[in-house]
Simulated assay, not measured.
Amino acid sequence: MKKFVGTGVALVTPFKSDLSVDVDGLKKVVDYVIDGGVEYLVVLGTTAETATLTQEEKELVIQTIIEVNAGRLPLVLGVGGNNTKSVVDELKTRDFSHFDAILSVSPYYNKPTQEGIYQHFKAIAESSPIPVILYNVPGRTASNVLPKTVLQLANEFENIIAIKEAAGDIVQAMRLIQDKPKDFLVISGDDMITLPMVLAGGSGVISVIGQGFPKEFSEMVRLGLQEQVSEAYKLHYQLADSIDMIFEQGNPAGIKEILKGKNLTENKVRLPLVNVDTTLAEKLHQFTIKNS
């Protein structure tokens, strides 16, 4: 589990101007974040626009990242959904030989009860051949995985090793950290409160802004883990405006604008997402120049 302490990056799926997958751009992004010092990579998460990819495109993304990574960093694969049986079927049939864990989002749209959420992840834990990282993001799923449910799962299933906690609620995060099993990891899913969570006892982050500024953000997390508070907060405040900006008009439209400014890939997103407007694009461009 130590491999998931620090900064993980939720990789984008770059697109060309015709909205096909930009394989060369994806290779550049993977090398860029690895060279920037992050600890692990997350494949086919929310930031990858996974909901708009065909099955063939998902496999292309997976194989490209495996090839470019070449075993350099641990890999986490997004395997989740609101149809429990479909998720379980994928867990039983997919080759996970190149992956170190799965990231599985709480069911969205259905709005299950806490018991339904528990049963969903119980089925996943019993089917997954590799460790499971829970993903709580109520802003997208319309239901919050309460600490009681997380702790029940963490205590009952050894292969549920962590949660990506993205409720944006520092109190909820602290309750998880306070009561979790010793080796269970509480990972921030919100870039802006990553440092406070780490200083409270969290294990790091699965980040979006860390893709644009991997060196600075991963160093901030490491400093936080070492309780070098002043130095860590200097980096936090250096990047804070960019964190607000990349989410202002939707993810990953904002981070793709930064990646375009770094000449890594285009800023194309697929509908129903749209590019950031020209005003925000210029703000992101100026921030990138200033901090490059």
Score class of each variant (00 low, 15 high):
Gly201Val: 10
Leu264Ala: 13
Asp89Pro: 02
Glu126Pro: 05
Lys283Asp: 02
Glu156Val: 06
Thr52Gly: 06
Thr265Ser: 15
Gln178Leu: 10
Glu257Asn: 14
Ile243Phe: 06
Gln286Val: 10
Asp191Gln: 10
Ile177Arg: 00
Glu156His: 00
Pro14Gln: 11
Lys290Tyr: 14
Val12Thr: 10
Leu151Val: 04
Leu264Cys: 14
Ile161Leu: 05
Lys262Pro: 02
Asn275Phe: 09
Gln178Trp: 02
Glu67Cys: 04
Asn159Phe: 00
Leu280Cys: 04
Ile255Phe: 12
Gly36Lys: 11
Thr141Trp: 06
Leu53Ile: 06
Lys234Tyr: 07
Ile193Cys: 02
Thr149Pro: 03
Phe217Glu: 00
Leu185Pro: 08
Asn275Glu: 15
Gln114Asp: 13
Tyr233Trp: 12
Glu67Gln: 14
Gly189Glu: 08
Gln63Ser: 10
Asp169Gln: 01
Ile187Lys: 04
Leu103Trp: 08
Ile246Arg: 04
Arg140Pro: 01
Lys268Pro: 01
Thr13Gln: 00
Lys256Asn: 06
Ser218Gln: 01
Glu156Asp: 09
Asn82Trp: 07
Val12Gln: 09
Phe96Gly: 01
Met1Asn: 14
Asn110Phe: 00
Ser143His: 13
Asp183Lys: 09
Gln114Thr: 09
Gly6Cys: 12
Thr279Cys: 05
Pro147Cys: 08
His285Lys: 14
Pro14Ala: 07
Met197Asp: 04
Gly204Lys: 10
Ser20Lys: 05
Ala154Gly: 05
Gly168Tyr: 00
Met245Trp: 15
Asn110Gln: 13
Gly6Pro: 10
Glu56His: 12
Ala167Val: 05
Ala123Tyr: 03
Asn263Ala: 13
Lys256Asp: 06
